[in-house]
Computed example of a mutant assay.
Amino acid sequence: MGLLDGKVAIITGAGGGIGRAEALLFAREGAKVVVNDVGGARDGSGGSDAMARKVVEEITAEGGVAVPNFDTVATAAGAAGIVKSALDAFGRIDVLVNNAGILRDKTLLKLDEELWDSVIAVHLKGTFLVTQAVVKQMVAQGGGGRVVNTTSVSGMVGNFGQSNYAAAKAGIYGFTRTAAIELQKHRITVNALAPVAKTRMTEDLPMFQAGMESLTPEHIAPAALFLGSDLCGDRTGHVLAVTGSQVFAYKVVQSAGKFKDEGAAWTAQEIADHWDVITKV
């Protein structure tokens, strides 16, 4: 018995890297998988059917069931096309993994509007569009469901040269938290992964140049499987981070703060004077 027997899963950006590892593992655990990928370069340019088709071939060669989809996540029409592929092939949707992404790194002073918009469109807007299209179907089915979004360490703590990517990934965190609250009544869980892995997207970053062999997509996929399966239970609104053999959670933490005895508004000088106490966690 697999953890996803009888389930239908959509995985976006599944033509390589983390998405591919997730698609293969989900299929091994019994899911029927829609392998979505536009087949473009790391910066989102170009496109090809080859990447998604190759992953489908890998799945079917292992005895699994999968179909390819080549729609972009960055438009409403593309999101609708992804849902249509799942319904045409399998008749329902039980799990969504929003994994599609691109990188167009520049420091803030060199970043232009097109570089900003393109990254936001795929990561943040794409997560919104595909999630909305999928959960409408899940609600219509009436049987609950699971959504797994992909945020990032960059979105949680920031990273040099990635203000566009970090903003998109931080937005996905806020989106995940809100969707989790709204969709609880429909028995749909919404959680997120913050993965660190060496892939086509990240292989030229300094941290992956040597000694980081454990940071593979295959280390990430089991966390997605947990969040996408019944093992997750009713847990929702969480960010699960995976860095090689380490698994941990990201949380926004509020400091204890400090009250003024007289209940009056703080002055700027008073905030400066009490900064260490105000910010102590």
Rank of each mutant, 00 (worst) to 15 (best):
M51W: 04
K198H: 02
K84D: 15
L96Q: 14
K125A: 12
Y250I: 02
D273C: 04
G228F: 09
V83R: 08
G142Y: 09
S245T: 13
Q162E: 15
I172Q: 06
D234V: 13
G2F: 05
A41G: 14
A52N: 10
V134M: 06
D94W: 13
V190D: 13
V135C: 05
F259W: 01
I220C: 06
Q269D: 15
H123K: 11
N99M: 14
A14S: 14
V8Y: 11
S255Y: 00
H186G: 02
I11F: 08
G257R: 00
T151D: 01
T236M: 05
M212A: 15
L225N: 05
R20N: 03
A86V: 13
F90T: 08
V247P: 01
F259D: 00
V190G: 12
L3E: 14
M201D: 10
G30K: 04
Q132E: 14
E113W: 10
L3F: 11
T178C: 12
L3M: 14
T127C: 14
N36W: 05
L103R: 14
L227Q: 10
P68Y: 09
Q269Y: 00
T189F: 12
K260N: 03
L205A: 07
G171M: 09
F128V: 13
Q209D: 01
K185L: 04
H238T: 15
V73M: 12
D105W: 08
L193D: 13
A50N: 02
M201L: 15
T151M: 11
K260S: 03
A133R: 09
P195V: 06
F248L: 02
L96C: 15
K7D: 08
I278S: 00
I278V: 11
V252L: 08
K110H: 12
G16P: 00
F90P: 07
E182S: 12
